[in-house]
């Protein structure tokens, strides 16, 4: 495998984690357009830990995930009052605030960025990405996931049949933030250079795009979406300048003809059934 493709593969693993972070939050009916910020928190914190304090990378990622998870839960608490688009706008604001914070955070380079991280292999990236994807797929079969779906479908009814919707929503935000932080930590150590612009609105949008395109009702949808976003441009080489427009068009088409995204429960069933039959 050439270094070029290895690097693309690593990128898609990092994007997969970002997409999963949006997916987990979206599963409770909350759209976050600010997950780039949690990614940034993970990237900066883990880089500081490995570069300045010589903490081993894996430990640094775990610490960053926990820290971002706590921040996510704290952010989610006031956000409980907001729904739908109002929540989405608040997360945009949060994302911009965090980006602005890192721009001013001179201790870690401010707008000049931060470097000095040890480069990691694509295998290490996918160890995390694959592991977390499997964990999410197991979670999708659990009681907790059913509760999240209930909150997603009808929050009022969920509360009235005995579910603690507050805990569910805050928990989803916390876990989503933690996953985004791991994505950020891996990004920082794969790229070996980070700057605040890496974690802005565009990044948050990229995560959402991967989820919506790949399939927003099943975990593996994020995998499809991430691979698509990273590798499709390779096939679009002849129209390289227009690849973003192609994604925009694809997004609109998917929303119009297949709102749940490319992959959904019934498609998975069809695919696995065929394989079993053959």
């Amino acid at each position: 495998m050439s270094t070029y493709y290895a690097s693309l593969l690593a990128e898609s693993g990092i994007l997969l984690l970002g997409a999963l972070s949006v997916y987990i939050i979206l599963a409770t009916g909350q759209l976050s357009l600010g997950n780039g910020a949690f990614m940034g928190i993970g990237a900066y914190l883990s880089s500081y830990l490995t570069v300045a304090l010589n903490v081993p990378l894996t430990l640094a990622l775990v610490i960053s995930a926990i820290a971002a998870g706590i921040i996510g839960a704290i952010v989610a608490f006031p956000a409980l009052r907001l729904k739908g688009i109002y929540l989405a706008m608040a997360t945009v604001g949060f994302g911009e605030m965090v980006r602005s914070f890192f721009l001013n955070f001179d201790a870690m380079g401010g707008s000049g960025g931060y470097r000095g991280m040890q480069h990691i292999s694509v295998g290490y990236v996918w160890l995390w990405a694959g592991g977390i994807l499997i964990a999410v797929m197991l979670l999708e079969r659990s009681r907790v996931w059913l509760e999240m779906q209930a909150v997603h479908d009808d929050e009022t009814a969920a509360g009235l049949i005995g579910l603690n919707t507050t805990v569910t929503k805050i928990g989803a935000f916390g876990v989503g933030a933690a996953v985004a932080a791991i994505s950020g930590g891996l990004f920082a150590h794969h790229n070996v250079y980070i700057e605040p612009a890496n974690f802005g609105f565009d990044r948050s949008i990229e995560f959402v795009l991967a989820v919506i395109l790949g399939g927003s009702t099943v975990g593996p949808g994020s995998l499809v979406g991430s691979l698509l976003l990273v590798f499709l441009p390779e096939f679009l080489r002849p129209i390289a300048d227009w690849r973003l427009a192609a994604f925009g068009t694809l997004l609109i088409v998917v929303l119009l003809v297949r709102r749940q995204g490319i992959l959904d429960r019934s498609l998975i069933r069809t695919l696995t059934f065929r394989r079993a039959a053959a």
Partner: peptide, 12 residues
């Protein structure tokens, strides 16, 4: 999200 699609296209 669909307006986001247009936004991406227009910027491109």
């Amino acid at each position: 999200l669909s307006t986001l699609g247009f936004s991406i296209i227009l910027q491109n």
